[in-house]
């Protein structure tokens, strides 16, 4: 079953066009990666899906729902969540971990918030003693775990990952990637992962789309990439630069 279907997507900011007629689809439970350098429009696609980039045309269908403009229903946010690149910027500096998670649970209409907060912390591998700490008392990896826990609060089906590990050290990156792998296996999540790092995307995703200047240059499976079956020169260039 198709979880996400994007057809002829164009996104622009003012008069600048950021994404040009992009089409791809993601099956339920699948994980798709968007790879490209800065300015290639890869994050913009996620922002258009979530309504953070209001000016777009084309079709975006997520879990059978046709999206329009920048307004999304509560039902949408319950099923689709996003994890941001910089865990230093994606947590409110004055809210403790407890506040962040309790508020997300409350907004998602969950009951037994206290118990669920504990469970969320446990699910993302954070010790309960972190519950009442503030972001500045946490390391980058711990913050990203909190951000992932927040995204999981409404028990979503689709996670949009916007460079979730590019601000982290490699050893922490490994921990977060493993966590994301485990969560996907345990909950049957569908992922779209955006990254500039080809090995990371190849590690996490079944299929990947290479983007340049707002368009998809090449789409292939991670296996094909590993077998050096990339055709487009740009993909080969990226490959050469990242090994």
């Amino acid at each position: 079953m198709t979880a996400i279907n994007v057809q002829n997507l164009d996104v622009w900011f003012g008069s600048v066009s950021a994404v040009r007629s992009v089409s791809f689809s993601v099956a339920q439970g699948q994980s798709v990666g968007l790879v490209g350098e800065s300015g290639s429009g890869k994050s913009t696609i996620l922002r258009a899906m979530t309504g953070l980039a209001p000016d777009w045309s084309g079709t975006i269908q997520i879990l059978g729902q046709n999206l329009t403009g920048s307004t999304r229903t509560r039902g949408f946010f319950k099923k689709v969540q996003m994890v941001f690149q910089d865990p230093y910027a994606s947590l409110h500096p004055r809210h403790s971990v407890d506040q962040v998670l309790a508020e997300a649970l409350h907004l998602q209409g969950m009951d037994a918030i206290n118990k669920r907060t504990e469970k969320l912390l446990n699910d993302v591998g954070l010790d309960p003693r972190f519950r009442f700490r503030y972001p500045h008392q946490l390391s980058g990896g711990q913050r990203q775990r909190v951000a992932i826990a927040r995204a999981l609060a409404g028990e979503p089906e689709v996670l949009l990952l916007d460079e979730p590990t590019s601000a982290l050290d490699v050893s922490v990156q490994a921990e977060i990637l493993n966590l994301l792998t485990d969560l996907r296996a345990a909950r049957g999540l569908t992922y779209i992962m955006v990254s500039h790092d080809l090995p990371v995307v190849a590690h996490m995703c079944d299929t990947l789309a290479v983007m340049q200047n707002g368009s998809i240059v090449e789409m292939m499976t991670a296996q094909a990439l590993r077998a050096h079956k990339a055709v487009e020169p740009y993909t080969r260039e990226l490959l050469a630069a990242s090994t």
């Binding site: 509560r74 994606s90 907004l107």
Partner: peptide, 13 residues
Amino acid sequence: SSDFIAAIRLQGA
């Protein structure tokens, strides 16, 4: 325009 506001908007706030 910060990420934490975007994040809470995506929770439906």
